[in-house]
């Protein structure tokens, strides 16, 4: 496989970019691919805490692009999973600390050293996002089934298209199947109709995600929740496997009454 660089982005903040990046990075490393998880949010670093590697950071992305430290030296190796490395963002600098040229050069170096690189993009559509995306080949857009998040995703998709990223695929995060059934949440199909891009996964809203972030242990390390399975499936789809979408129906939608509801189109 040629080395791949994938930017994980969303436009809107708080929809689950970092959680998605962390879980996918772990799952891809577990699948045997040498994986780099890069925190592109200079000044607001977060990927380190979600991955549970915050105490092991010595150098960061800005040190590498400024040439004060070699890439290999800045990468934090995850001791729990073979093949997983984190390049943390700088916390005491701002987004202006990195230029587009520096990012492109960094991406070239990442390509030489890793099978797959995931870049966690900052929220917004400004330079921080552009830097995170500029060196990437592909993009994963994370959104939630909310009007504001979908609107921002649309804007970001337009920008990624104009930057010639391909493929651009969608993760629909925090879906609540029961609310979809009762008609109070936009459905997967609606989001896809509106955004007109390919889906790479649907992640149910799951309390396990909060617990995993509290602990700094991504779900894909070995949790058996539905969200963990959903993230693992996204990773498998990134690797080209065809995996059907999970059945996210809550228990009350199953069984005889579930059948009845389905038959009535409810």
């Amino acid at each position: 496989m040629d080395p791949r660089i994938i930017v994980v982005t969303s436009g809107k903040g708080g929809v689950g970019k970092t959680t998605t990046t962390a879980n996918l990075a772990v799952a891809l490393a577990k699948a045997g691919y040498k994986t780099a998880a890069v925190d592109g949010d200079i000044g607001l670093r977060n990927l380190d805490v979600v991955l549970g590697l915050e105490n092991r950071i010595v150098f960061n992305l800005v040190d590498v692009v400024e040439g004060s430290c070699k890439l290999q030296k800045a990468m934090v190796r995850d001791k729990r999973v073979e093949n997983l490395f984190l390049l943390p963002a700088a916390q005491t600098r701002t987004k202006d600390a990195v230029s587009s040229d520096q990012m492109l050069k960094l991406c070239d170096e990442l390509r030489e050293n890793f099978d797959i690189t995931l870049i966690d993009s900052p929220a917004g559509i400004e330079q921080g996002f552009r830097n995170a995306a500029i060196g990437a080949d592909e993009a994963i857009v994370v959104t939630t089934p909310e009007v504001s998040a979908v609107r921002d995703a649309d804007r970001i998709i337009g920008m990624l298209e104009s930057m010639s990223k391909s493929p651009i695929r969608l993760v629909l995060n925090r879906l609540r199947p029961a609310m979809v059934k009762s008609g109070d949440m936009i459905d997967v199909k609606d989001v896809l109709d509106i955004l007109a891009i390919d889906l790479i996964g649907v992640i149910p809203d799951d309390t396990a995600v909060v617990v995993s972030t509290n602990k700094g242990e991504p779900l894909t390390l070995g949790d058996d929740s539905t969200a963990a399975k959903a993230f693992s499936n996204v990773a498998r789809r990134i690797l080209g496997e065809e995996v059907p979408l999970l059945d996210l129906d809550s228990p009350d939608q199953k069984g005889f009454f579930g059948f009845l509801r389905k038959a009535l189109g409810l």
Partner: peptide, 19 residues
Amino acid sequence: EKSKETAKKRLQLVLIHDR
């Protein structure tokens, strides 16, 4: 109308103007 339908319609309109 269910709020899902409202959300869909609002999104479609707002995106046409955004785009």
